[in-house]
């Protein structure tokens, strides 16, 4: 596997990052099987794993947590906060109150004492990015988080966050996680050039566009001569 530098951090990651959203009740609920898939990915050279607190209500963090016991330090482990974990007020978003609480929950589910990359799942329309960056900076200084990043930020908010970090002497987002596939190319115009300009890494999600690019969804093939006989085993 060829490794690539994650922005200007000096950390090397594989060009495929293993997302674990499909492990747990949302997808494959067989833990042992999910762990085998993770171990196979690591054996193939993948050293980058991404999850989020919200996927499968936290199970998607617990499964890699279990799978990585014994090799945690060899993996760049990324997770996210922001999406509502339940209906209660303050159990979502980018506030200092929620971030410091939810980081502890993620650490527990991931069975680790540090997160390599802690990402804001979505930009907030109601919270100052300075509040969010301030709380994340404290997590970095406490040694609980190595790097911080954003997800689905438009270019203007990527720029704003970089400027706030510089002006307030806070940790800066070193990665952005945007959607990207052959069918979804809007980031090529603005987000990707901005990310490159700031020396950030880009881990792109849905590169198969939610299954559209797997070959599973095709129009009915054009009419062909029926060749049913080839499917019927020869009689003995």
């Amino acid at each position: 596997m060829e490794y690539r530098l994650l922005g200007r951090t000096g950390v090397s990651v594989s060009p495929l990052c293993l997302g674990t959203m499909m492990f747990g009740p949302w997808g494959n609920d067989d833990r042992a099987d999910a762990i085998r898939v993770i171990h196979r990915a690591l054996d193939a050279g993948i050293n980058f794993v991404d999850t989020a607190d919200v996927y499968s209500g936290g199970v998607s963090e617990e499964i890699p947590g279990e799978a990585l016991e014994g090799c945690r330090d060899d993996v760049v482990l990324a997770t996210k906060f922001f999406m509502p974990m339940n209906d209660r007020p303050n159990h979502s978003g980018g506030s200092r109150k929620w971030i410091l609480q939810e980081a502890e929950n993620s650490l527990r589910r991931l069975k680790t004492d540090y997160i390599d990359l802690y990402q804001v799942h979505r930009p907030s329309a109601t919270t100052d990015v300075e509040e969010t960056l301030g709380a994340l900076t404290d997590l970095v200084r406490q040694g609980k988080v190595r790097y911080i990043g954003s997800s689905s930020y438009p270019a203007s908010q990527i720029v704003e966050a970089q400027w706030v970090s510089r002006e307030r002497n806070l940790a800066r987002f070193v990665t952005e996680q945007p959607p990207y596939s052959i069918l979804v190319r809007s980031i090529e115009e603005d987000v990707l050039p901005t990310v490159q300009r700031y020396g950030m890494g880009a881990l792109v999600y849905s590169p198969l566009s939610g299954g559209w690019l797997t070959g599973r969804w095709r129009r009915a093939p054009p009419a062909r001569p029926r060749q049913l006989h080839v499917r019927v085993p020869a009689s003995t």
Partner: peptide
Amino acid sequence: AINHPGVTSAIIGPRT
């Protein structure tokens, strides 16, 4: 996806 010079990694999400 991983061929673009601005992209570091593509996140795959296998279930099986």
